Amino acid sequence: MEVFNEYLDKIDDPLQKERLEHVLQWISDEFPQLGSKIAWNQPMFTDHETFIVGFSTAKAHLSVAPEKAAIEVFSERIGQAGYTHTPQLFRIPWKTPVDYELLRDLIAFNIEDKADCTTFWRA
């Protein structure tokens, strides 16, 4: 988690900082095998040097970027959780609860789906 400290320290809103810190810690606890890094100015998790999920903050929401394949598989559940999405990310409004079951399933999907992936991003 220390790798994320500098990023977290730049977040001015204490509630946003606390929310993102909790999400990042939860992922670290749930998936201790994942690597953590800052790349493209966002905190992200990797597995065998391939991208699993990344995050960024905006005024109104936390963006979760799991790549297009995961968005396609989970788009219905993302909508049911009350989140909006684009082809590459979904948005969790700051005042909306985090659906940790969705996040767990999405990360597990990416880990399994990319088990044989030899590139950072899906081809």
Rank of each mutant, 00 (worst) to 15 (best):
N5H: 05
Q42T: 11
F4Q: 11
W94S: 01
Q42R: 11
S63G: 14
A81C: 04
F45V: 05
G82R: 15
Q80A: 13
L8K: 11
K114N: 05
I111H: 03
E72M: 09
T119G: 01
A108C: 00
H22L: 14
K17Y: 07
V73M: 08
M44S: 10
I27G: 11
S36M: 07
K10D: 06
I52F: 10
D29M: 11
V53Y: 07
W40T: 08
P97H: 13
F45H: 09
D105T: 01
H85P: 05
L102M: 00
R122L: 13
F120K: 07
M44V: 06
D113P: 04
A58W: 05
K59G: 00
Q88F: 10
K10L: 09
A108E: 06
P66D: 10
A60Y: 14
I107A: 01
P93K: 01
V53H: 06
E76V: 01
W40A: 15
F31W: 08
D116R: 04
N41D: 15
E67A: 05
E67S: 06
A70K: 08
P87T: 10
Q42H: 04
T57I: 14
F120T: 03
I11P: 05
S63M: 03
A60T: 10
I27M: 12
E72Q: 12
V3Y: 00
A65E: 07
I107G: 04
M44R: 08
P14N: 01
Q33L: 14
D47G: 09
N110Q: 14
Q88T: 15
E2Y: 04
M1E: 08
I111Q: 05
Q88C: 11
K17G: 06
H85K: 11
E72R: 12
K37W: 10
I11M: 06
V23C: 11
E30S: 15
A81T: 02
P87E: 15
I52H: 11
K17W: 09
E30T: 15
D47E: 12
A39F: 05
D99F: 03
G82P: 10
Q33D: 14
E6D: 07
E101T: 03
N5I: 04
L34S: 10
H61W: 08
P87N: 13
L102T: 00
I38F: 02
D113C: 04
I27W: 11
R122V: 13
W94M: 00
I107L: 04
K114D: 02
H61G: 02
D105I: 00
I38W: 01
Q33M: 09
D47N: 15
D116K: 05
I11Y: 04
T46R: 06
S56G: 12
E18S: 03
S63N: 08
I107P: 03
E18W: 01
W121P: 04
T46Q: 06
P97E: 14
Q88Y: 08
P14I: 05
T57W: 11
T86W: 05
D99K: 02
A65N: 11
K59M: 01
